[in-house]
Amino acid sequence: MQALEYPAESANSAAEPGKWVIEAEALSKVYKMGDEEVRALDGISIAIARGEYVAIVGASGSGKSTLMNIIGLLDRPTSGVFRLAGADANSLSRDRMAQLRNREIGFVFQRFNLLPRTSAQRQVEVPLFYAGVTGQPAAARAREALERVGLSKRIHHRPDELSGGQQQRVAIARALVTNPSIILADEPTGALDSKTGAEVMALFDDLNQQGLTLIVVTHDGHVARHASRQITLSDGVVVEDTKAGAQ
């Protein structure tokens, strides 16, 4: 992986070069729906090490989306401890959470979430804008990231000029461009046919080979089988946590 320079404070993860990039202890998330309390997560404890390839699986309503939101620092737990690269989510300000999302997490969504009428290069530059990188340096890094996902010939194409698989690659390049600790993918092949889905998963395998931590939230067994570890959720608790080869 190429080194990217960031302001000193973002070296946060390096300052505490722990093995675990994700640590959750007795994690709960409770939603109030009128008088009723819904326990979306009910005391989950997991740890994910750097370089791991993890699939979080479970039926809808199992709590995997809620877990993903907390891992992605889009939401906070109701109780319990959640640490991303050593930073405790409960003690982070909104701005600091945004900053960590920018630097430590790369999101990949089911429906790509690309900006309409915007070229691939500009899409990939978006996270860099919030990292304070603009102009030529941003353009250069965006092109580098697009090269990594095999789209160096499509940098000026807009979403409507790209196939679904290519659009998802642009989204992956966007997730990679700030060189985050983890890539967090939510049903990354859900909007793709099986052939392009397989291509995207092959790209993920490649990235994991290069040492990137991958967390894929899915209900698709084929997708989950690419991961080296499967965490199965049901009714807000971990019912299974298996490593490939252990079975």
Partner: peptide, 16 residues
């Protein structure tokens, strides 16, 4: 809305 969500996810703060 979706763009705003995306920008949030990739690190936009309130003031951004």
């Amino acid at each position: 809305t979706k763009e705003i969500g995306l920008r949030r996810a990739v690190g936009a703060r309130d003031r951004d």
